[in-house]
Computed example of a mutant assay.
Amino acid sequence: MMNRRDALARVALLMGGAVIGGDYFLSSCSSPSEEKTKTKAPTAAAPKELPAVLNAEQVAYLNEVGETILPTTKSPGAKAADVGGFMAVMVRDCYKPADQQIFKQGLTKLEATANQQYKKGFLALDATQRTNLLTSLDAEQKNYAKTKTPEAPNHYFRMIKELTLLGYFTSEVGATKALRYLPVPGKYDGCVPYKKGDRAWATT
């Protein structure tokens, strides 16, 4: 599968900025939400499991949102990669408490926007309505990013989109079905022929 640094670089390029929580992702998600002290000597005890931030229903919901962002075509979509489950881990382990709260509140805002625009929840929308809704939210987060100051809160839909892309590119189906993948690199070739329409490489 694509390594973490390459995946982050690709998502940052697509999103036009640094990935939220990316530093923690590169360091294997060192739980920024967990208070750390240095007064006690380290022990051999297993680390305590952090409580879940998102429940199973929210994970399933995020899989549907992710599938709208990266739908199934000739290759499997985001739902096949379980990006909802990936988001649950990332939000719990790699997001600061403030961003965790923004993310959770964002799911409520997304649902409220669906009800406001279509008089029904996101899961009840057809494919076209889902796409139109998320396209408008994507435009909203892009406009927000243009004037956002470093101390201003992050936009929830940017988080959702970033984690969808990151989860997909680092998944088995994303790396092997949507991208070209060589599990064991062969000889170095600095000039590989590329035809228009060829899939990008998952490994470099």
Rank of each mutant, 00 (worst) to 15 (best):
Y61V: 01
G186F: 01
A178L: 15
Q117E: 06
Q116G: 12
M90G: 04
A112R: 02
A44G: 04
F86V: 11
T68Q: 14
S33Y: 09
V89D: 08
L50W: 00
G121E: 03
K148F: 05
A200N: 10
A127V: 08
P193G: 10
G174L: 07
A124F: 10
K79E: 07
G66Q: 05
E111F: 03
A112I: 05
L54D: 02
K79M: 14
E162G: 10
V184N: 14
V91F: 03
L62I: 00
A12I: 03
N132P: 02
R180Q: 13
F25D: 09
A41N: 12
P47D: 11
T108M: 03
Y95H: 15
T170F: 07
Y95N: 11
L62V: 01
E111Q: 09
Q100K: 15
L133C: 05
T204P: 15
Q141D: 06
D138E: 10
Q141R: 15
S30G: 14
L13P: 10
N3S: 07
T37I: 05
V89A: 13
A178S: 14
G16F: 02
M90A: 09
E172V: 10
E57D: 12
A81V: 08
Q58H: 11
D126P: 04
K142D: 08
N63C: 14
A41D: 11
I102E: 12
M87L: 13
A56I: 08
L107G: 07
K195D: 10
F25Y: 04
F122G: 01
T37K: 10
V173M: 01
S27D: 03
D6R: 13
A18T: 12
E49Y: 14
A81R: 01
L8Q: 08
L123A: 08
T68D: 06
P153D: 01
L134A: 06
K142A: 11
M15K: 00
S33Q: 06
R4W: 06
T128C: 00
P51T: 07
G167Q: 05
M90T: 14
S31G: 06
G16L: 03
Y156E: 03
G17E: 07
M159H: 04
V83W: 01
G167D: 05
K177Y: 12
L123W: 00
E172K: 13
Y61G: 08
Y194A: 05
K161S: 12
P42A: 08
T39E: 11
M1H: 13
Y144C: 00
Q116S: 15
P47H: 14
E172D: 00
S30C: 13
G197P: 00
E35M: 06
A175D: 09
A56Y: 03
D138T: 15
L182V: 15
Q58C: 04
V59R: 06
K187M: 13
P183H: 00
P153K: 04
S75K: 10
L163D: 13
K195T: 13
R92N: 07
T73Y: 08
D6I: 03
L133E: 00
E140K: 09
K177D: 09
C29A: 06
A80L: 07
L137P: 03
T39L: 12
M1S: 14
L133H: 03
L166N: 02
